[in-house]
Design a protein around this nucleic acid. Sequence first.
DNA 1: TTAGGACTCATACTAAAGTATGAAATTGAA
DNA 2: TTCAATTTCATACTTTAGTATGAGTCCTAA
Lengths: 139, 139
Amino acid sequence: MVRKTILIFAALVVALLALFQLSKYSILTGDSSIETIISIIAIIFFIIGVIINKRILHKEKSTTNKIDYKKIEELGLSKREYEVLCTVALGLSNKEIAEKLFVSESTIKTHVSNILIKLDAKRRTQAIQIAKELKIIQS
Amino acid sequence: MVRKTILIFAALVVALLALFQLSKYSILTGDSSIETIISIIAIIFFIIGVIINKRILHKEKSTTNKIDYKKIEELGLSKREYEVLCTVALGLSNKEIAEKLFVSESTIKTHVSNILIKLDAKRRTQAIQIAKELKIIQS
DNA sequence: TTAGGACTCATACTAAAGTATGAAATTGAA
DNA sequence: TTCAATTTCATACTTTAGTATGAGTCCTAA
């Protein structure tokens, strides 16, 4: 993360120094005008600015919307319980969840009860909210 | 939207032309080295690139996460019903909502029933999901 | 092999959610 | 003012959700 940024900036400095030499050479030989050099530099650094900013924002976005799997473990949610939690968040009833996962409704009730305890929720709607706040399900 | 972008780019071109003149002047008078000029230009355009990119992405984000008030009207949800819908999405029970809005629990039940009909949902959890998909509540 | 965790299921219960119906008060626009 | 929509409330009911308890199965790590 930090190393990448350092590398990118190092590359930028090198590119800049190279451009210095190019500009000097160009002026001396008269191959191209100073305006062209400056324009190219401006465009290049404009593009670099856009790219770097996009990467940073993309990283932020991916980290803010990412599911916190560590949290799931910390809460002690089992694989099946997490599965049920996700279907609950989709708005399914216990009966529908039971059919979807090929188990009985009473099994789902047991799972949901355990989920509520582990998430410290009173209702399934509250569990959904808490799960989203804890970033353990998609918001 | 588009006009703003044109204006910004026009300003950039003007700034660039101004820098041309400055660079020429500086070289002639020997006030500063060509390296300094180029560095400044590079930094300025890098920053401009970052700012423009940030604005564009911010605009995208704000439009994708914005609440669709037209949809709320289309669905025929009344002011109070929408209010109840929001509290339901927070995970509150009918009783808690009643206390929060200073009305009886039966009133909330009536509202919720009407909300379910208007959102074509079978349960409140499903209503929350649908409302989020329709972008009429915060996701 | 065995102890514990995860998953399953059932029964019996309480609590909450949701439906249906009717009705009164309020409000805003024509 | 009057009419329609909104908001409010109640009662009686059905359905779904959630709790408590006990128990059987399966799998895995010690």
